[in-house]
Design a protein around this nucleic acid. Structure first.
Lengths: 198, 198
DNA sequence: GCGGGAAGTGATAGTAACTCACACATGAGA
DNA sequence: TCTCATGTGTGAGTTACTATCACTTCCCGC
């Protein structure tokens, strides 16, 4: 695990990622070529693609998905699916510190404001949806997700994404957890599972 | 309106689109180059890009959005936002004939199964969300969409998209309206509280 | 009906993301 | 130390997409 080879590889990967993010924030995503990134990181353009299949992939969207799925499975089966996901997200967010949240804000802003990255993210949401749908099924002791589970998962991801957008729009002035709570609350109000107002 | 110039332009646009769709279905999206399409349509690659900014744009996603928005505005203000959108979609679908629906199925299948097109579509959903959010606001006599409207619109689009996925998965065996109704119903009733499938 | 101007088109040349084939070097294991 | 797998660079190529310029064809005011 700690061979020189693997450490070098990890360092190279990190270097590419760090320089890429710095350049993207500095001069914009489209104004930064892969060649620029490679040169800044001290590798050849080839090597860039050995580490990341596409230019978009160099911006990693922190993957809390598996954690979130487990938290969803742990929620009581009687709870409304959207409420379960909302609670799971709240629990996941509680583990994030101020610094981490600030980093997430910067990166989320970059992704949401760059069409190419936004499209990439949308595509990735499909995986999150599937994972969540499976988690909702397992929460009820089912093996496979039903159509209802898929719809609920899709709606939950949509609520989460909208919360992130609102959070970025507000420049992170409110705590992300508050915005997420508001978003899921709004959905649940409409469905009659929560008292209106808030 | 009926100048020779404009008619030719429309014909060229149509020719490019038709040949593109045919080639995509025939040999796949990635296996078809813009040069192939241009040659089949009898124009230069340059001209292709004069008509469509990107290769992805040549696959048009029928734009029912404005119609849908108006139908949403017409729903009673007391109705739940999701129910309002669901009813509006049902009304919009009622105007489609068998043939049109079959075309939508073919095109939707192509889009959902081609990563590049799927990503493009996801990006376009942002516009639909904004339009729907505005419609939900206007339905209540408001001028601007609140956060709640945005979340509801996002959830509605997610439900609609999931319905389309399920519809394609089932190869269009059920009527799209039935699948859409099931999807919105699942969201309104709550997961696991309604028999899935039909 | 005609002549000036605009609009559509093509050829050429270029940028940038990504791929492939091959050769080299260096760290890992015997 | 020797071997070999693995990471890396070089170079050449494909494809989406852009910019410039020149040519043709249609439209419209005279």
């Amino acid at each position: 695990m700690t061979g020189l080879r693997e450490r070098k590889k990890a360092a190279t990967r990190r270097a590419i990622q760090d320089h890429a993010l710095r350049l993207f924030l500095d001069r914009g995503y489209d104004r930064t070529t892969v060649a620029d990134i490679a040169e800044a990181a001290g590798v050849s353009p080839m090597t860039f693609f050995r580490y990341f299949p596409t230019k978009e992939d160099v911006v990693e969207y922190d993957e809390y998905d598996p954690v979130l799925a487990e938290l969803v499975v742990a929620r009581p089966a009687e709870e409304h699916a959207l409420a379960a996901v909302g609670a799971a997200v709240a629990a996941a967010l509680a583990t994030l510190g101020e610094g981490e949240l600030a980093t997430v804000l910067v990166r989320t802003r970059l992704v949401l404001r760059t069409p190419a990255l936004r499209a990439r993210r949308s595509a990735g949401e499909g995986a999150t949806r599937d994972l969540l749908a499976g988690a909702l099924a397992r929460r009820e002791g089912r093996e496979d997700a039903t159509h209802a589970h898929r719809v609920a998962a899709a709606a939950a991801v949509a609520a989460l994404t909208t919360a992130l957008e609102i959070w970025v729009d507000e420049d992170g002035r409110r705590h992300l957890a508050a915005v997420v709570d508001e978003a899921f609350g709004a959905l649940l109000d409409g469905v009659g599972h929560r008292a209106p107002g808030g």
